[in-house]
C-alpha cells in the first residue's frame, strides 16, 4: 500500500473529502452554488456557529460535554447590546469597551459552569444544561422579552465591510480559529485537554491537576461563546433572549461531523472548522438545489450520519454508548 494511502490518513482527511464532495455535488446540480458570493453567504451564516463549536470542541476533547451555549450566547448577546448602548452606542466613542467586558463575562459564566461541574461533582451534561437555562432566564429577565437593536454603522462593518468579497467578521473568526489552534497545539493547557480526554486516571496519576484543567476548559469555552454572542449581534443587528437558539444542535452536530469523537481525546479545532462548514454547506445547498422543504430535515439527518460514518475511526473503540 502506498505510504500516504493508509487507513489512518483516509480517516484523518475524510471530513474534508466529504466537504469537497458536497460542494461538487451541489455545484453539479446548480452551478450558481459555486460562486464567491455564495461562499461569502455560507461563511457569514457559519461564523457565530463556528465560534460556539470551537468552544465546545475543547470540552468534548476532554471527554465532557457542554450544553450551556444557548443560554450563554443569548445572555452575552443581550448584555453586549445594553453595554454597547450604555457606553455611547457607537464603536468609535466608547462602545468598544463592551467587547472585552463581554468576553470576561463569557469566561465568568464558563468558570461558574466549571465550578458547578467539578466542585459539586455534577456531570458536565447536567451542570452545563442547568447553567444554560439560568443564562436564558437571565436574558429574559433583563430584556423583558423585548428586542435590543444596534444600528451603529461602524460596528455593523463586521457584516457590511468586505475584503476580497468576504465580510470583515469572516476574518475575525479566522483570527479566533488560529488562536484556538494555537491554544490546542502550542500551550500546556491545550495538550492537557487531550491528556484528560485520552485517559483521565492516567493523567491524574501523572500528577496533572485534572480539576483545574476542566475548569479552565469551561472558561475558554465560555469566552468563545461570548465571541459568538457578539458576532450574532453583528450579523443580525439585534439581540433577544432567544438569540442563542439552535446553537446547541448545530455546534455539537458540526463537531461530531468534523470527526471529533464524543468520547474524548480525538480530533481538534480543524475538524470542527470542517464540520461547521459541512453543516452550513448542506443547509445552504439544499435550498440552492431546490430540495422541497419537507425533505430538508430528513436529508440533513441522513447526510450527518453518512458524514459521521466516514469521518470517525470506529474500529479503535470496542463499544459505543
Amino acid at each position: 500500500m502506498n505510504r500516504y494511502l493508509t487507513r489512518e490518513n483516509a480517516i484523518r482527511w475524510a471530513p474534508l473529502m466529504v466537504l469537497i464532495g458536497l460542494v461538487i455535488l451541489f455545484t453539479a446540480i446548480n452551478p450558481a452554488f459555486f460562486s464567491q458570493r455564495n461562499f461569502a453567504r455560507i461563511t457569514v451564516a457559519a461564523a457565530p456557529a463556528l465560534m460556539v463549536a470551537i468552544g465546545v470542541t475543547f470540552i468534548i476533547v476532554m471527554g465532557s460535554i457542554d450544553l450551556s451555549m444557548e443560554g450563554t450566547v443569548g445572555l452575552t448577546a443581550v448584555l453586549f447590546c445594553f453595554l454597547f448602548l450604555a457606553t455611547g452606542g457607537t464603536l468609535a466613542v466608547g462602545g468598544w469597551v463592551a467587547m472585552p467586558l463581554i468576553l470576561l463575562l463569557g469566561a465568568a459564566i464558563g468558570f461558574v459552569n466549571g465550578l458547578v461541574h467539578v466542585k459539586l461533582r455534577i456531570p458536565s451534561f447536567m451542570a452545563s444544561l442547568a447553567i444554560g437555562f439560568v443564562g436564558t432566564g437571565a436574558a429574559v429577565l433583563v430584556t423583558g422579552g423585548d428586542i435590543v437593536k444596534i444600528d451603529d454603522d461602524t460596528f455593523r462593518a463586521l457584516l457590511t465591510w468586505r475584503i476580497a468579497g468576504f465580510p470583515l467578521m469572516v476574518y475575525v473568526v479566522g483570527g479566533f480559529v488560529l488562536l484556538a489552534w494555537f491554544i490546542q497545539s502550542h500551550t500546556t493547557l491545550g495538550r492537557n485537554f487531550y491528556a484528560v480526554g485520552g485517559g483521565e486516571e492516567l493523567a491524574h496519576a501523572s500528577g496533572l491537576n485534572v480539576r483545574r484543567v476542566r475548569i479552565m476548559g469551561f472558561v475558554l469555552a465560555g469566552m468563545f461563546y461570548a465571541v459568538a454572542g457578539i458576532l450574532q449581534v453583528a450579523k443580525l443587528g439585534q439581540a433577544e433572549s432567544v438569540s442563542g437558539a439552535n446553537f446547541m444542535f448545530i455546534s455539537i452536530t458540526s463537531v461530531v461531523v468534523g470527526g471529533v469523537a464524543l468520547w474524548g481525546g480525538i480530533g481538534g479545532v480543524w475538524n470542527t472548522v470542517v464540520g461547521v462548514l459541512i453543516v452550513n454547506v448542506i443547509n445552504n445547498g439544499m435550498v440552492v438545489i431546490g430540495l422541497p422543504d419537507f425533505l430538508q430535515d430528513g436529508v440533513l439527518g441522513l447526510l450527518v450520519i453518512v458524514a459521521v460514518v466516514l469521518s470517525t475511526d470506529r474500529r479503535s473503540i470496542s463499544f459505543v454508548k
Partner: peptide, 25 residues
C-alpha cells in the same frame, strides 16, 4: 419563486434569504 419555512426565527430567516439570493439572484 419559492416559499419555505423560516420557523418564525430571525437567524433562520437571514440564512434562508441568503440561500434564496444564491438561487434566484
Amino acid at each position: 419563486l419559492d416559499a419555505q419555512p423560516a420557523d418564525w426565527d430571525t437567524t433562520k430567516a437571514a440564512e434562508l434569504m441568503a440561500s434564496f439570493l444564491t438561487k434566484y439572484g
